[in-house]
Amino acid sequence: MDEKNSIKEKFLEFEKFLNFVGPDKEQLIIVLRKAQNIFGYIPKDIQNLISKKLRIPIAEIYGVITFYNYFITEPEGKYPIHLCMGTACYINKSENLLKEIKKILNIDIGQVTEDGIFSLSVVRCFGACALAPVANINGKIYSKLTPESLTEILKKYKEEGI
């Protein structure tokens, strides 16, 4: 199946879900979660569709999306990197990890590498302060990171797709 048909099928699946929900404003979070599960992120055209179907202003929808760090508006890389910059991680030098990631991957926060393998975002807390500094890479938590250990982890993902 080519990418165009895949996108069309995803859109049809989501539209069917929206029709099932109907214009119930109380279902916004559920609808946003469903959109993100289907598309991997919540693109602008899907936000507009949600706005029409639920009869909620687009600004309100965007406000909810940007309030919760679970929701994203741009596609992530194959291996998304979420680096904690909360107090405990910051005190334990997570800013050095951020510099290292930017240097190694040549991307900034909110960007995806040219090959589509990695994307980078920061979060405020994973609730793993005793393990600081912490990063979530492709859904796996890595703790007590150093620039050296992070470099090795990224190398393994790139080479082996761990």
Rank of each mutant, 00 (worst) to 15 (best):
I91G: 04
H82A: 12
A59R: 01
I42D: 09
I56N: 03
I29D: 15
K102I: 09
I91A: 07
G63Y: 01
E95L: 04
C84M: 00
Y70A: 11
G86C: 04
K52D: 15
P75S: 08
K103F: 08
R33A: 07
I42H: 13
N96F: 04
P80N: 04
N92I: 01
P57R: 06
I38A: 05
I91H: 09
F71C: 05
I56A: 10
L97V: 06
T73F: 05
K103V: 07
K44V: 06
P43W: 09
V31K: 10
C84N: 04
L105Y: 08
A35S: 14
A35H: 06
R33P: 03
R33N: 12
K25H: 03
T87H: 05
G22T: 13
Y62I: 01
L32R: 10
D24P: 03
T87R: 08
D45L: 12
D45W: 05
L32N: 07
I29C: 10
G77P: 07
N106M: 10
H82I: 11
A88P: 00
L32E: 13
N92G: 01
I50K: 08
G22P: 06
L28P: 09
Q27I: 00
K99L: 14
L28I: 13
N37K: 02
K53F: 04
C89I: 00
V64Y: 14
Q47K: 13
P75Q: 09
K25D: 12
K103G: 04
K44M: 12
N69T: 08
T87G: 05
L49S: 11
N92D: 00
N37C: 00
Y68S: 11
E95R: 15
L32S: 03
K53E: 11
P23L: 01
V31F: 08
E76A: 13
L97D: 06
N106G: 13
I104M: 13
Y79P: 04
L49M: 14
N96W: 00
Q27A: 15
S51E: 08
M85F: 03
G77I: 10
F39P: 04
L98D: 12
I91R: 05
K53Y: 08
L49A: 04
A59H: 01
Y68E: 12
Y41N: 11
N69K: 13
N69H: 14
G40P: 12
S51R: 10
K25P: 11
